[in-house]
């Protein structure tokens, strides 16, 4: 009986219509592809971005402070 199932399954083969591939290829010319969403930042990426921003702000404050001192000294 196993052979019988194999024989039945082997006989059941649908084949694509002759122009199927050509038709699908023509069809996709009119269909836009989905765009991948821009990758979301991970937590560590947000954290390093925040740390960089804090460091930058600190350096800016430092510059302003020393500029103020320098102007005062003159």
């Amino acid at each position: 009986m196993a052979d019988d199932i194999d024989q039945l399954m082997a006989s059941e083969i649908l084949t694509p219509p002759p122009d199927f591939a050509r038709r699908i290829t023509a069809l996709v010319r009119q269909i836009p592809q989905n765009q991948l969403p821009s990758p979301r930042l991970r937590l560590w990426q947000w954290a390093s971005l925040g740390a960089g921003a804090c460091l930058g702000a600190l350096r800016l404050c430092e510059f302003v402070f020393f500029a103020f001192i320098a102007v005062g000294a003159q």
């Binding site: 694509p16 199927f20 699908i24 069809l27 996709v28 269909i31 836009p32 592809q33 989905n34 765009q35 991948l36």
Partner: peptide, 13 residues
């Protein structure tokens, strides 16, 4: 089969 290939096209990336 047609819908399969259309989905493949849309999501190929």
């Amino acid at each position: 089969a047609q819908e399969t290939f259309l989905r493949l096209w849309r999501n190929a990336n």
